[in-house]
Nucleic acid binder design. Sequence first.
DNA 1: CGTACGTTTGACTCTGTTCAATTGCCGTGG
DNA 2: CCACGGCAATTGAACAGAGTCAAACGTACG
Lengths: 254, 254
Amino acid sequence: MLQNSNSPRSRTNCYSCGLRELCLPVGLEEEEISAIDFLINRWSKVKRGGYLYRAGTNFQSLYIVRSGFFKTYVLHEDGREQVTGFHMPGEMLGLEAISTNVHTCHAVALENSETCEIPFSKLEEAGRIIPSLMHHFHKIMSSEIVHNHEAIALLGGMKAKERLINLLLNLSDRYAKLGYSSSKFSLFMTREEIGSYLGLKLETVSRAFSRLQKDGLIKINSKIVQLNNISWLKQRNQNNYPAIKDMNEDAKLQ
Amino acid sequence: MLQNSNSPRSRTNCYSCGLRELCLPVGLEEEEISAIDFLINRWSKVKRGGYLYRAGTNFQSLYIVRSGFFKTYVLHEDGREQVTGFHMPGEMLGLEAISTNVHTCHAVALENSETCEIPFSKLEEAGRIIPSLMHHFHKIMSSEIVHNHEAIALLGGMKAKERLINLLLNLSDRYAKLGYSSSKFSLFMTREEIGSYLGLKLETVSRAFSRLQKDGLIKINSKIVQLNNISWLKQRNQNNYPAIKDMNEDAKLQ
DNA sequence: CGTACGTTTGACTCTGTTCAATTGCCGTGG
DNA sequence: CCACGGCAATTGAACAGAGTCAAACGTACG
């Protein structure tokens, strides 16, 4: 049991980490992995409701969720919070802060969570020596941008029910990647947080859930949701933009 | 007139480029600038309505707007287009494609435009040799994420009039940085494109313009807009999230 | 000069918000 | 163990803001 996740050894050991194939070390050689183990100089727990970082604080490190569940949010002028994302194990937090060296959003744990901390200056140094590490880091940042574009498309063009289905399918996919059930999982966030993320009021979220349940598409019991027919939901509500097919349409436009 | 912007010489010369302080070379030494001139292997024109790249095509290069005005958009399943951003000189395009090596959005010129092309693999190579270049590139990607967060906040929590004011102030700031008037400028996009970006229908955009004009806040003549009292507009409609002030509120939350 | 496109404006509809009351759930303490 | 309080979630009814449909106007370009 040397590699038990609670042993001190595994605290700074990417090699034995269950998230290895989802996280920063993707695509690295064994020796390179041990090199980045070096970077990760801390391993911290954040209790439910606790802050990983706050807007306005100085940026030093990026974080990777090791276990648990986070939300990030910004505040509107009037104090209303706008959730900008939900974050699951293997996902990186803090990328927004690189531009100004100050965090521009708040990161809160919605469950008791664990994170790996990666001092950014060290990551840049290591990236110079290990090109594939740097490249993979660029991919992570880029996919964050893609993900944001999807969120913008969702907020800009979808109705309440579609937004909710989209979020559920998105969570479903991410749980699947982690090896959990894609059809039945827990929502760690409140209706209000879901609403904030989807640009809806909590009552609207609640009504949308009720309606989806009445239509037999899902089963929902407070925080536990079950998707009855994922492929049907996906068909009814594509969340990917079929790039190739689009090309024909575009040709006409030009 | 060796450095005239149409001379062949200046095509690959960052040193003499008017955007030098807004673009990739920010913070580099002179010798380093000549090193990145090396990277930029093409300099292309895109006519109004033409595509810089399309979703679904392979990713090779990033682009920087040299002159003109672009929009980027993704397509919803039903073919409706969702504008994800407007892009002015000095701004970088194509960052979304790094993650998959395929462009996930379309980039169209709204005016006759010019761009610099930066092969991404060469940029990564150069970044290994010039750490400050790599670091600045990371800042650019990060600020793209911040910008997306702002767009999400706008779409998630604002009313039509607020959204429009926000866009106008945003454009105003960006024009100011380029040395143009911040109070009177041209909108290169149609009402429909504005609406798509703001998550509104074109009629709603038009009505919002009319109302702002009737209230004396702006003057609008088809595509030319004049902001009558920028500081008042800003006060009435903050588009920054005052991070420091927020800290007090947050303390209560935890 | 005429067509096509973008814009403005009005009247009506509908989705989501607001306000309010009720229910359900869970942890605390009697 | 049950009663209580507090928070989250549900549901209903009235309301408001944005969407839809339609008509008319302006402007740019062939």
